[in-house]
Nucleic acid binder design. Sequence first.
DNA 1: CGGCGGGCAATG
DNA 2: CATTGCCCGCCG
Length: 247
Amino acid sequence: MLALSGPASARTPTPIYDSSALLTPQPTSFSQCPQFFARGSPPAAPPAPRRRELCYEAFAVLHDGVSRTPLYVAQRLTRRSIEDADERRADRFFADARLPSGERAELDDYKRSGYSRGHMAPAGDMPTPTAMAQSFSLANMVPQNIQHNGGPWSKIEQDTRQYVLRAKGDVYVITGPVFTESSPTIGRNAVKVPTYLYKLVYDATTQRAWVHWQANREGERVSPPISYQELVKRTGIEFLPKVVPQH
DNA sequence: CGGCGGGCAATG
DNA sequence: CATTGCCCGCCG
């Protein structure tokens, strides 16, 4: 078992799962890693059962036990963190033991599924060996078209890193899957295959945001970004805190 | 073309 | 379970 033994996760107690936990939402554990969210505010998603908040050393995951994937993964990137992102790729994927077995993807689900294990918070962003290892949690993965993952999506990840290298301050990135009624599943645990993937990039210094919205399929090219408001419309999730008018 | 970064699977 | 070789797409 690969220990999630980084400083951040060491401070994160393992959630207790019992019947009452399914009925009454637990207090947010994102409160223990607010640094990954703009102004410390996690996205406002409509409440739903079987959602778990997981903090890691360099990113935070809202996991969905129905799809057995993350719903979104949040990061804060800086020029410094990208300059530090020169770790050797760990390449050791693992099922995340902090999730109940019925809610999580297992390695066998992806094996010979025809889909790759696609990072939401990319391995290439990770600034420390611990963060690199943690990024291979299946709680950070969705079944992704192999060609799209290694091609256009990889390009978007690298473009994002290049942007951050030139940014003046904090850049918040939120990445996640979008499912449709017809979304297929893989493996015995029926891990849902996303129809679309998005990556929201928000530069807190300039207060500019843009969104990469890509179909999870063969032949998909890098599409022109869409607006933040369009992302909210398509997902129903308010990812960024509403700006409080100053006076 | 080679290097790099996203992966995969076979092998002891 | 770690190592190794391989595939693919993108870019300079």
